[in-house]
Design a protein around this nucleic acid. Structure first.
Length: 940
RNA sequence: GCCCUGGUGGUGGAAUUGGUAGACACGCAGGACUUAAAAUCCUGUGAUCAGCAAUGGUCGUGCGGGUUCAAGUCCCGCCCGGGGCACCA
């Protein structure tokens, strides 16, 4: 019921006073309209104030709309943006949409709706929902990655990547034309080819190459280049699948078989930037965990490449190269393992082993990389061929293939040392391969020991050497003999940058005689063409391959992946309407780095690494003046869903309460959390739910209630555990909703959503309201001068709100406000001099109620632009401390002492205390510990 | 499997640098106001033992060890949940 109507019904003979009740619906609408009309959130690039840039990871506008998990980070960033504004900063706080992506395309395939249309609709829904919550986004800077005005510049940046190479000596990107000049003068002797280091040529060679040969070589240097890579191919669907669309080797949709297929792909040469991406981590404020994840992803290791001769029946493959981080263990190599997908494996297989090898290769082809790495079982297959240890040519080493060796890492071949590596050890045991002990006493024969501190034995020329020294000896010897070399390796691979899909940026590339030719800048944007069908093209090509007009022009039929547009969007917000450049250098040098970036850890290695890469390249090419995009990163936790279940007695329409299901055969069914109060099912609502699918349900209750089962799962529409923020905003208001999301816990922590506690926050705002207006009396605020006690409450709050906001501890700020209002209520404080600063502090958290009460107090200007109150330590200073007194570390009593009391008299007073006496009676005091301002501990 | 992360009352959480574990809320119980309800307000609320009570004892931060005068916090080992693992975004 409308509170105002209720009020009228009760007090019909008094004139209505809108201020007596906290009428949040009217207040919030009023201020949202006002702020929109006044352009309160429009941000200028031209300001004398210091700048501050607060950014959220922009959302993919899914058809399911916003759920309560989305706004968690947005509320945090909104609070921080508003807080910085109160501190006198010019704050950029934009929002936009990462609008290309697979779901819209899948929806198009299933419903025939063009992705642009469904995306537009989804964005409208998202934006309406976002606006309900009262964010201070500058919507005039909104970006949409699928808008041609935006992707024109994504394509433009791609052309810069295509037209650049990484100069290793200078450690920066340069124009490819400059590389051509180098080749013309001196060949590539100082610029070994990153794509294939066997390519060597002189200036004369280069001059002798034809156009195609030169272009093929340049392709091996470009930062965006074309190559070949394996994808998950599903023949039945005729399409390439993402890893998470493949479950147990079959497609998630339809359960069709999936296998590896090699396709032409675009890549970004991120491996060239591996070292700079690592070094850059020192200059940014990411959590240690985040830095660790990125470091591990890049996976830099140093070791050696070692060439092994092969002895096989056919003898057609003379040797292979293995990468190892432990060249010192070379004499302990008991077998080698190759990646099964290497195409020459079958040539080294013996006649006897060949059928088994073929069977094993087929098995691996059906496995996703994820499955291969997660596999606990040891599988593999002997090839029938042997490798020769380069330092002991009498030692024949069996060559195996196994799925745990991936072709994409290192050379796709490992030398296995079972006494020093656990996985090798288990493999050796499984295939009964004899184990050579090169560790002496440090190997017990039972478990591998990965030590680097052993003195080598059974190691020929290395015997007696400590392992750390042996590494250098082996590398030197390998290099001298020309059968190996020192090698820095990265686990990170070049980033696949093409998708065989429709709903992405088209590549501004045409193909002529196998040569990729970039479009002229003036031809951008290359618009995504209309298609009839969104299904795949022939032979694994994307939908664009089905358009004759497109293929007729020789245009590239792949499109860019989701992370293309999101790798640079933070730059576009700075200058969103520029048609001449992706961002004016004046704008990017004013706004500079994102000062605070908020988003989930699920983007730890993907998006965050790619955008760091793009920023570095744009910096190298002179387009921007900084090389790390995000100065400070705050990871928000995931809001999980708390699912509810009902239990149907199998084969009936009878539902049995959770406490009674033991021993019953039941069907466990997800039920909409919105028709469950806590765990109690609203049985009438249940009968109407899902178009009355359960209209005939009957219930077996416990204590007169139907109790549901509970499980924490990902929040998802299909699990009926989503909670729509609109419903909560309607019921409690945006201010309550904002504060409740923060009150839920630390913003970094994941937690299941529970609506139950929201009323506590709502009560707090009502209680705050009553400091200003009371039901009977109306306005109760006064001009009186505050007392010392009231000032102390205020300044304690200022200190807490400021320090906790600055360390992003928003949940404790909310409770600080609660404590403040509780104490002011206790003190019956209605004084403007206390209340006004409280409103300013509250503005970032609950902007609408703060604005309304600020106006009611008759304060000047907008509370949005007020000045954050200054903390005065003198007003909170204490002269005494109530000390905990412990005996042997156990708290026994409290005693109050002046803070400046000297230790002697304090010790005497403590020892004279009755409770202390009781505990130390008859025992000698070994130690008296006194930490001034903290605690007292007596050791007996 | 590998990498990261979390685990504290019935519930969400607080304890910022090793120093009074459980702030602030929810829920629950009892009470006030009301014809009644809603709203609001007040009191209590980790477990357990003793006591009519005031109060006092013991236990207690996933589990097992350790360091320390003192451990939720530091160290070692383990268990369980969450995220990521390269075409979901």
């Amino acid at each position: 019921m409308d509170p105002f109507a209720a009020y009228l019904g009760k007090k019909r003979f008094q004139p209505p006073n809108h201020h007596m009740d906290y009428n949040f619906r009217d207040i919030e609408k009023k201020w949202q309209r006002h702020w929109e009309a006044s352009g309160a959130y429009t941000v200028s690039n031209d300001s004398t104030k210091p700048k501050y840039y607060v950014l959220d990871m922009f959302p993919y506008p899914s058809g399911a709309g916003l759920h309560v998990g989305h706004p968690l980070g947005y509320i945090a960033s909104d609070i921080f943006a508003r807080y910085k504004r109160l501190q006198g900063y010019n704050v950029l706080h934009p929002m936009g949409y990462d609008a290309f992506g697979l779901p819209a395309e899948q929806y198009a395939i299933e419903h025939g709706i063009h992705p642009a249309d469904s995306t537009r609709q989804n964005i409208a829904t998202f934006e309406k929902q976002l606006n309900n919550i009262g964010f201070c986004f500058d919507w005039s800077r909104r970006v949409n990655t699928s808008d041609p005005g935006y992707y024109k510049w994504t394509q433009w940046i791609f052309l810069q990547l295509f037209g650049s190479f990484y100069d290793r000596p200078l450690k920066k990107a340069r124009k490819i034309e400059e590389l051509v000049a180098i080749f013309t003068h001196e060949g590539n002797q100082d610029y070994p080819c990153p794509g294939d280091d066997s390519i060597r040529f002189t200036a004369e060679d280069w001059a002798g190459y034809d156009q195609k040969q030169q272009q093929d070589i340049l392709m091996h240097y470009r930062l965006a280049y074309c190559g070949y890579g394996e994808v998950n191919w599903c023949e039945a669907l005729g399409t390439v699948l993402a890893n998470d669309e493949v479950v147990n080797g079959v497609s998630e949709r339809g359960g069709h078989p999936v296998e590896k297929k090699t396709l032409r792909q675009w890549y970004l040469r991120i491996t060239e930037y591996a070292d700079r991406l690592l070094e850059g981590l020192d200059s940014v404020e990411f959590s240690d965990a985040m830095k660790e994840m990125q470091t591990n992803w890049i996976g830099k290791s140093s070791g050696a490449e070692i060439s092994f001769q092969i002895e096989s029946e056919l003898g057609t493959v003379p040797s292979f190269t293995a990468y190892t981080t432990r060249p010192d263990t070379i004499m302990g190599v008991d077998f080698c393992v190759l990646a099964p997908e290497l195409d020459w494996i079958i040539q080294i297989a013996s006649v006897e082993q060949r059928p088994e090898v073929e069977k094993y290769i087929a098995y691996v082809k059906s496995r996703s990389e994820r499955e291969r790495m997660a596999e606990k079982r040891i599988t593999g297959c002997f090839t029938g061929a042997y490798a020769i240890n380069p330092f002991d040519t009498d030692k024949k080493i069996p060559i195996y293939i196994s799925e745990y060796v991936l072709a994409g890492y290192g050379t796709g071949a490992i030398m296995a040392v079972p006494c020093g590596d656990e996985r090798d050890y288990k493999f050796a045991r499984n295939f009964q391969i004899p184990i050579t002990n090169i560790l002496g006493d440090l190997f017990d024969g039972e478990t591998a020991n990965p030590t680097k501190d052993a003195k080598l034995v059974n190691s020929g020329f290395l015997n007696g050497l400590p392992m750390r020294e042996a590494m250098e000896v082996v590398i030197d010897k390998l290099t001298g003999a020309g059968i190996g070399k020192r090698k820095i390796n990265y686990r990170m691979r070049d980033a696949a940058f093409s998708r065989q899909r429709y709903w992405g940026e088209p590549f501004p590339i045409t193909w002529k005689d196998g040569v990729a030719i970039p479009l002229n800048e003036k031809e951008l944007p290359l618009l995504l063409p209309q298609v009839e069908k969104y299904g795949p093209g022939p032979g694994g090509a994307g939908p664009l391959a089905t358009i004759e007009e497109w293929t007729g022009k020789g245009l590239e039929t792949n499109t860019m992946p989701g992370y293309a547009g999101s790798s640079w969007y933070f730059l576009r917000y700075m200058d969103p309407h520029n048609t001449e450049a992706f961002c004016d250098p004046a704008a990017s040098s004013y706004w500079n780095q994102v000062d605070l970036y908020i988003g989930g850890t699920e983007h730890a290695v993907g998006h965050l690494l790619y955008s760091r890469l793009w920023t570095k390249i744009l910096y190298d090419l002179g387009f921007i003046s900084f090389q790390e995009p995000f100065k400070k990163l705050l990871n928000q936790g995931m809001i999980q869903g708390s699912s509810r279940f009902v239990y149907r007695l199998h084969g009936t329409q009878e539902f049995i309460s959770h406490g009674l299901i033991a021993g019953q055969q039941v069907d466990k069914i997800h039920v909409d959390v919105n028709i469950v109060d806590g765990v109690e099912l609203d049985t009438e609502a249940f009968k109407k739910w899902k178009n009355q699918e359960f209209a005939n349900a009957t219930f077996i209750l416990e204590d007169g209630k139907y109790i549901c089962g509970v499980e924490v799962e990902k929040m998802s529409k299909s699990k009926f555990n989503t909670v729509n923020p609109d419903v909560l905003v309607e019921k409690f208001g945006a201010d309550t909703f904002r504060m409740y999301e923060m009150f839920l816990g630390p913003v970094e922590q994941s937690k299941p959503w529970d609506t139950k506690g929201i009323e506590g926050v709502h009560r707090f705002l009502k209680k705050l309201w009553r400091l200003f207006f009371e039901e009977e009396k109306g306005a109760v605020f006064t001009e009186d001068a505050p007392t010392a006690a009231e000032l102390k409450v205020l300044h304690k709050t200022i200190q807490k709100v400021q320090s906790d906001t600055e360390r992003y501890s928003f949940n404790t700020v909310v409770s600080a406000f609660m404590v403040c209002v509780n104490e002011l209520t206790e003190l019956k404080c209605h004084k403007k001099q206390i209340l006004a600063p409280v409103l300013i502090m509250l503005t970032p958290y609950a902007p609408h109620i703060a604005a309304e009460l600020w106006q009611a107090l008759g304060e000047d200007g907008e509370v949005l632009d007020a000045q954050f109150p200054a903390f005065n330590p003198a007003l909170v200073r204490e002269s005494a401390k109530n000390y905990p007194v412990s005996i042997n570390g156990k708290m026994r009593t409290n005693m109050e002492f002046p803070l400046d009391m000297d230790k002697q008299s304090l010790e005497a007073a403590v020892l004279g205390n009755e409770v202390v006496q009781k505990w130390i009676e008859g025992k000698t005091i070994k130690k008296f510990i006194f930490v001034p301002g903290k605690m007292i501990n007596i050791v007996i």
